[in-house]
Computed example of a mutant assay.
Amino acid sequence: MTQAGNEVLYEVVDGHIAVITLNRPEVRNAVNGVVANALEAAAKQAEADPNIRVGILTSSLDKVFSAGADLAEISAGRGNTLSTKDGGFAGFVELKRDKPWIAAVEGAAFAGGCEIVLSCDMIVASENARFGLPEVKRGLFAGAAGVYRLPRRLPRNIGIELVATGDGLDAQRAYALGFANRMTPPGGALNAAIELAKAIAVNAPMSVRESIAIARQSQDLDEGELAKLSRSAAGRVFSSEDSREGPRAFLEKRAPVWKGQ
């Protein structure tokens, strides 16, 4: 069994942005039990820290984000360790998260690696990034939410085509289809993701959390259900201290000082 080390790195940038880096280069960031538990712990740390407003998930490699599941672990009968109780595969794809998350992708994000990316709210891709669910080419199944998250993030017919063929999606087409929020030259994904995170982090934390909670469900619920949830969220936001600080700061021509409550 692989021992825990530095397979997942945690860094705070600009006071409010958690950068979590997959760092298992010898196996192209393949997910084993150590990675799954460490990634879950890092994501939970970011979610629990009141100073953190945005999370970024990236890779220490310039040619691969993650190869997905560690096949050596599966062949050794330890496939169950690649998921955690709270987080599902990689300790992340099913983890409850209230804050916005951005995937900064350099190189290949296939199979489970793509499913990790699909678990984030936004994607920043370098020009050398590629995405795909090739499981059907090997008689397997993208069971970590990929088969339904990919068609939701793309025009439905394009998503179904990629699921059925197992073919990849390059960064240029991903950006043109709206799959990626930003596209950068190679090596620029993380910096662009940090800039996007900064644009989010300057806003009122509660307003952001409550807003994305509704936005995440926009394709799953009907208008009536969404309106009901929106009214509840608006009530919480407008009763917060930050809802008074924002207009006051605007009138006083200064930057707001958010308390997140």
Rank of each mutant, 00 (worst) to 15 (best):
D62F: 06
E135G: 01
L140N: 10
F89E: 04
Q45N: 14
M206Y: 02
D98L: 06
Q219N: 10
P25W: 04
V208N: 00
R149I: 04
H16P: 00
A189I: 01
E127M: 15
G188N: 11
L229H: 13
E223Q: 12
G68L: 02
P50Y: 11
F89M: 05
P185K: 14
V208I: 12
R153E: 05
I200K: 03
D220H: 10
F65G: 00
T81H: 05
A213K: 09
A204P: 15
T81L: 07
S59A: 07
A192R: 08
I194H: 01
G224F: 02
P100C: 08
S230G: 14
F89A: 10
Q219D: 13
A111H: 06
R231K: 14
M183H: 05
P186T: 15
A234C: 08
L196P: 01
T184P: 05
V257C: 08
A30P: 00
K228L: 06
L22F: 03
I158D: 10
P50K: 12
L154T: 04
V147T: 14
M122F: 10
A249E: 00
T184N: 12
E94M: 09
E106F: 05
A67R: 08
G77Y: 09
G178A: 13
R28I: 07
A171R: 01
P155C: 15
V163T: 05
A142Q: 07
V54D: 05
G87N: 03
G235Y: 12
H16T: 15
P186A: 14
R248D: 15
P256C: 06
K198S: 00
Q3A: 12
S207H: 10
E11D: 11
L251S: 13
A30F: 06
E40S: 09
A38M: 06
D49W: 04
A227N: 12
T165V: 06
D170N: 15
Q3G: 14
V31L: 08
I52H: 04
N157A: 13
G55R: 02
Q217K: 13
V117L: 03
F92G: 00
